[in-house]
Amino acid sequence: MTFEHLRGKAAIVGVAESDLGDVGPQRYAIELAAQAAYRALEDAGLRSTDVDGLFSCVMGRFMSNLDFGEYMGIRPRYSDSGVIGGSSFLSYVFHAAAAIDAGLCDTALIVYGSTPRADGHRRQPLTGSPERPNYEAPYKPRHPVSGYALATARHMHQYGTTREQLAEVAVAARAWAQLNPAAFHYGKGPLTVGEVLDSKMISSPLTIRDCCLVTDGGGALVMTSAERAKQLRKPPVYLLGAGEAHSHRSISQMPDLTTTCAVESSARAYAMAGVKPSDVNVLQLYDAFTINPIMFLEDLGFCAKGEGGAFVADGRIAPGGSLPVNTNGGGLAHCHPGMYGIFALIEAARQVRGEAGERQQKGVDIALAQGNGGQFSSQVTAILGSEAAL
C-alpha cells in the first residue's frame, strides 16, 4: 500500500527553529521546544489554541506530549509521540497528514527540543536504566559513533570508498553553513579535505570532522489541510509522498552494513508522490556522520550502490555543485541537538517557499528530506512540493 490518496492532501504552513547552538545552563529542552512552536505558529499566522493535533519529542521527557501540552496549554484531540530516533519527525509529518485527511485533527503541531550542551554544563546525569539485554555492551562500543564507523569501514572495504571522499561531505557541509547565519559553523571559515583527515580520530575511520555537531536547539512545523493552507499567511508546502521502514535496533543486527532501508522508504515515497530521483531539486539528508549522505545518495537512487563516494567528489554536493545537498549546513555544520530530522524538514520547506536567503536554490518545486534513526535503524523519506508540483 503506497497511500497515493494522501498526495497533496496536507501541507506545511509554518516552520521555525528555536535559539540554536550553546544556549547556556539556565535553559531547558521544553523551553526551546516551546520557543520553536510559537515561532512556527506565528510563521503560519495561527495560535496555540488552533492546535488540535500534537506530535512531540522533548528530550528527557518520558511523557513528552503530556508535558508539552501542559506547558503550551494545548489540549489535542489527536496525539502521537512515538520515538524511532531522528527520523521520528518525518514519521510525524506522514502520520499528521493521515490524521488530517481522516478528520482526526485540523491543525497539527510537530515539535522537538533538546539541550545536550546545556545538560553538559549542568553536569546533568543520564536518566533511566540501560536497555537490557544488550548483546553489544560487553564489547564496550562508543555508540553511536562506533556503529557508524563499522558501517563506514565496511563500505570502504567493499566499494573502495576513501577517507578523502568522506571528507568531501564535511567540506560541502561547512561551505553551505557559510551561507546560513543560523549555522553553528557560520563564520568559521572554509574546511579543507586535509583538515578533516588530520583532525582527531574518534572511531576509526571517522575523525571529529566526520561527526555531527553537539548543539542545543528546537524545531517546529505546523500542518493543516491543503484547502485551509491556501487561506493562511505563507505559500503551502505540500506533502507529496512519504514512506517509512526500519530493519533493526542494534548495528550488529543490520542486515547489510552498506545498505539501509531507505531503499524501501524512498520507494514508497516516490510511488506516493509520482516522482523519481531526477525530479528532485534539493536534498536534505540526515548527516550524523559523513558516511550517511554517501549511503543515502545510493539508497535513494541518485547513484548506484558503491558509487556514493565518487558521486560526492569535486564539490558535486557543495554550493555551485550539480546537486544541492544539505543547503543549511546539515548536522555536520548547522546544528545537531541529539536528533536532526526536523531540521531537514524545515530547510526543505524553506527551499520550496523560496525563503532560504543566500543559500536559496532556483526553481525548487520538489525537495526530499531523509530521516535516520538509531544506527541506520529507521528510515523515513518525505517528499515536499510547491503548488506547481501538485
Rank of each mutant, 00 (worst) to 15 (best):
Y270G: 06
G217C: 13
T115E: 12
V364T: 04
H143E: 10
D67F: 12
M201T: 11
S18C: 03
A242C: 11
Q124V: 00
A98T: 00
I291F: 05
S129I: 07
E355C: 06
A388M: 02
L221W: 05
S91G: 10
G309Q: 08
Q178N: 13
L221C: 05
F62R: 15
A333P: 08
M1I: 08
A37D: 06
E227S: 15
T207W: 00
A182N: 10
H155S: 14
S247Y: 01
T207M: 00
A269R: 04
A273H: 11
L150V: 09
Q124K: 09
M201E: 11
S18Q: 04
G69L: 00
A220G: 03
V364H: 05
L197E: 01
G24K: 02
P236I: 02
L6S: 07
Y286G: 05
I366H: 02
I30M: 06
G187P: 04
L332Y: 02
F62S: 11
S378G: 07
P255R: 07
L240M: 15
L206Y: 10
R61W: 10
V111K: 01
D106Y: 01
S204I: 05
V263Q: 09
L66Y: 10
A348P: 12
P141I: 11
Q158F: 01
V93A: 06
V312C: 05
Y159G: 13
A288R: 04
S204E: 12
L54K: 05
V145Q: 06
G85M: 11
I366C: 04
Q284T: 03
D198G: 08
P138C: 07
F62E: 13
E17S: 10
L191E: 08
G306C: 09
D256C: 12
E358S: 06
A177T: 02
P138V: 06
K234I: 03
H185N: 14
M156F: 00
E264W: 02
M156H: 01
D365R: 11
R154Q: 13
V312F: 01
M272Q: 11
I294S: 04
A175G: 08
T327M: 10
N372E: 14
Y38A: 10
M272T: 02
Q253T: 07
G219S: 09
D19E: 13
T162C: 02
S204R: 09
T152F: 08
N134H: 08
A273Y: 09
A382V: 15
P130T: 07
T162L: 00
E70M: 02
I74C: 02
D67M: 12
D80S: 12
S81I: 00
Q253C: 06
A173K: 13
V275R: 14
G60S: 03
D101Y: 11
A33D: 07
V145Y: 08
P255C: 09
D119I: 03
L90H: 10
G113T: 04
D80K: 11
G338T: 03
N372A: 12
S18M: 01
V280I: 15
Y71M: 04
N328L: 03
A153C: 07
G21V: 14
G45A: 05
I100R: 05
A98R: 15
Y28C: 03
I346H: 05
V312D: 03
G363Y: 06
A318L: 15
V380F: 09
R228H: 13
A97I: 07
C303I: 06
A318P: 14
L46A: 07
S225G: 15
L300Y: 02
P138S: 08
G160W: 01
Y159L: 11
A245H: 15
